[in-house]
Design a protein around this nucleic acid. Structure first.
Lengths: 220, 220
DNA sequence: TATAATTTAGAACGAACGTTCGATAATCCT
DNA sequence: AGGATTATCGAACGTTCGTTCTAAATTATA
């Protein structure tokens, strides 16, 4: 209680939404710049000196805002995951049709992905680097996000009387969407709506006729 | 011409296939162990000391076999890519049906992926780390592999009179397959044949009915 | 077995790493 | 204005990094 104790949590609940504290605003800026650097060089490849240069702040000054490089990655991943999940829940509230609910999931994911491509890439690419408590917390968020999609898939199956592995279906869908970070080019590929429609069509039509008596893979 | 000159190419063409030279065999062992380490810690996160420990060879001794850590990654990626492409070409020779050719592509990819999961993960995950000549050479291999799949897709479209973006379709398919490295569990998910069937069905059924008058995404 | 070629390793290099410390500058409160 | 609090920084710490040098051990050749 006596120490100067920097790097505290500091963001109080329920305060005015946009302004926040001076501390929080500065931290948010740092997180944005750090996201750019992690995106360019990867977590392990980015040095604290790179990060401080990108933020226009001294190397030592950074440690006033967070206590380690590891925690910085944690803050980025946590914020990104929390935000995308928050938006998803809002959008799902107004819809009950199983087909549309999956389409909403896809659209929400792709919209956020393309609008925050660097953050989502850091989330996807640096998936296993956090260890212990920090890693466990992010892993829990990931599992929850996965579970939501799995539920949507199960409901869809039930509503249509289909039989296939929800697990493989959901993870294939994640693959289709998350792989975007390796190839998406806004000048060639469409916007989120267009991609969501194409991927949604492909995927939903695909799982719809799968496993119908194991004859689907026969020729002709 | 006077120097001891270690780290030469050394693998002669056309020699007896299995034995190879002493040098090549030892190098191959090192590549295998290095693949394990890169898989566990990532390229940037793995130190030369980690790699030497895994190979049971001294730190300095490693440099007799390759001239830098970067070149080591290059050797791993090049060998992996070359092998999977070689096998694909062999398998495609015997088949002319467009549908089946895509299924062969999927099966070949998944079989190799699951049999060489660590190497394929290193190939996928450390995609952008090689720079200059080395990076360009790997990128060229990747582009060729992509182009092959794109051609299969175009032929499929032509044969069935379909209209959709081959680019998005191919890259979505790559996403489905390559994302495997984040979730595949041999005890839960099936083997390559089973996965290839499920993904093949999903994907081919999916693109088959896509974009039919843009009505596919309508409700009910 | 002597000699040449190949293969290995100990020790050290300078550079870069993540983090800490104590002091200074800027801001806030009354 | 003045004292407390918040924010920033230069310099340095001890480690670890990729790589090199040189000499010794091992293997192949005669």
């Amino acid at each position: 209680m006596a120490s100067p104790s920097p790097a505290k949590p500091a963001s109080r609940r329920g305060g005015p939404r946009v302004p926040a504290t001076r501390f929080d605003r500065r931290l948010a800026k740092i997180l944005t710049h750090a996201t750019d650097v992690f995106y360019e060089k990867g977590y392990a490849g980015a040095s604290m000196r790179d990060l401080s240069r990108a933020s226009g702040m001294s190397l030592a000054g950074m440690y006033y805002y967070f206590e380690s490089k590891e925690r910085l990655l944690y803050l980025i991943q946590k914020h990104t995951f929390t935000t995308i999940m928050e938006r998803l829940r809002e959008r799902l509230q107004d819809e009950s049709d199983p087909d549309q609910r999956i389409r909403i999931f896809i659209l929400n994911h792709l919209e956020y992905f393309l609008a925050n491509q660097k953050a989502m890439t850091v989330l996807s690419h640096e998936d296993d680097v956090l260890k212990n408590n920090l890693g466990a917390e992010i892993a829990a968020l990931k599992r929850e996000y996965y579970r939501i999609c799995l539920e949507l898939m199960d409901n869809y199956k039930r509503a249509r009387g289909l039989e296939f592995s929800s697990r493989v279906a959901v993870l294939s869908l994640f693959g289709m969407m998350n792989w975007l970070y390796t190839w998406y080019n806004p000048r060639v590929d469409g916007d989120a709506d267009e991609l969501a429609r194409q991927m949604g069509d492909t995927f939903l039509q695909g799982i719809c006729s799968v496993n119908e008596g194991r004859a689907a893979s026969q020729r002709k």
